[in-house]
């Protein structure tokens, strides 16, 4: 499943959020969109499933122009994990997970089996959690449900919008590991938005660095670390190593 973004621009009144962006995601690849706030990374992601319509350019999935697909049909075929999780508070966990299946008209017994399978995939115990409300779950558990919901209709494309940004570091680490395992297991093609450098290096097969609506550089983590295209990318790539050095220095100053 190949995603191609071709010369896409998004303008709001007099602001250009995304400026003539072109990139592609290979089948089975996880591309990280990395950048600060206002860099256009989330706008780019939302244009892929048409939550936002581009002002110019086009986006194709497996060669098919997304503009020719009914938006809600398109979105049912693409898994979407939200930054603010976005579980429906008036539905149970099971109802949240199967919501897309219901929209697709699955019969109840089949979607029940699928819900249990998905909850197990995201490492939640279906029996304990199926009939609970989202408010009864921790943030980490909620986002696991969010991932399960996105995977329900077996999409081959996933879009993730800073999915683990609001979680504490340990929970974030566990969810990152879970997601890496799941995406390998299911061979997902994914776009993953983050502003966290370390997360980008850990998750991405390739990283697209965006700044002020433009693509600054795209490449594997190794390429970006070794040969940053400009000063902005270099400073970005330096942050984790600089932070690691501070941590090492602390350890040397205070031996156990």
């Amino acid at each position: 499943m190949l995603i191609e973004v071709i010369g896409v621009t998004k303008r709001y009144a007099n602001i250009v959020a995304v400026d003539d962006l072109s990139l592609h995601v290979e089948a089975g690849e996880l591309l990280v969109l990395l950048g600060g706030s206002g860099s256009g990374k989330t706008t780019t992601l939302k244009m892929v499933n048409r939550l936002i319509e581009p002002s110019a350019g086009r986006i194709t999935i497996d060669g098919q122009d997304t503009a020719t697909i009914d938006p809600h049909e398109l979105r049912r075929r693409i898994g979407y994990v939200f930054q603010r999780i976005g579980l429906f508070p008036h539905m149970t966990i099971a109802e949240n997970v199967e919501v897309t299946l219901t929209l697709l008209g699955w019969e109840s017994a089949r979607s029940q089996r699928r819900v249990d399978e998905l909850l197990e995939l995201v490492e939640l115990a279906p029996g304990l959690i199926r009939d609970r409300r989202p408010s009864e779950l921790s943030g980490g558990q909620q986002q696991r449900v969010g991932v399960a919901r996105a995977l329900a209709a077996s999409p081959s494309v996933m879009l993730l919008d800073e999915p683990f940004g609001a979680l504490d570091p340990l929970t974030r680490d566990r969810l990152q590991q879970s997601f890496l395992r799941i995406r390998r297991q299911l061979n997902l093609t994914a776009m993953f938005v983050t502003h966290d450098m370390v997360e980008a290096l850990l998750m991405g097969d390739r990283i697209a660095v965006m700044n002020e609506g433009r693509l600054v550089q795209i490449g594997t983590p190794g390429e970006l670390l070794r040969s940053p295209a400009d000063d902005y990318v270099r400073r970005l790539m330096d942050t984790p190593t600089r932070q690691a050095r501070v941590v090492e220095a602390l350890l040397e100053d205070n031996p156990a």
Partner: peptide, 21 residues
């Protein structure tokens, strides 16, 4: 608004979004 966006994101039509969310 996050739930409205979530409803759109999982593929609800405007009528489904109104009725279900």
């Amino acid at each position: 608004p996050a739930l409205v966006e979530a409803a759109r994101g999982v593929g609800m039509t405007p009528v489904q979004r109104l009725r279900r969310v």
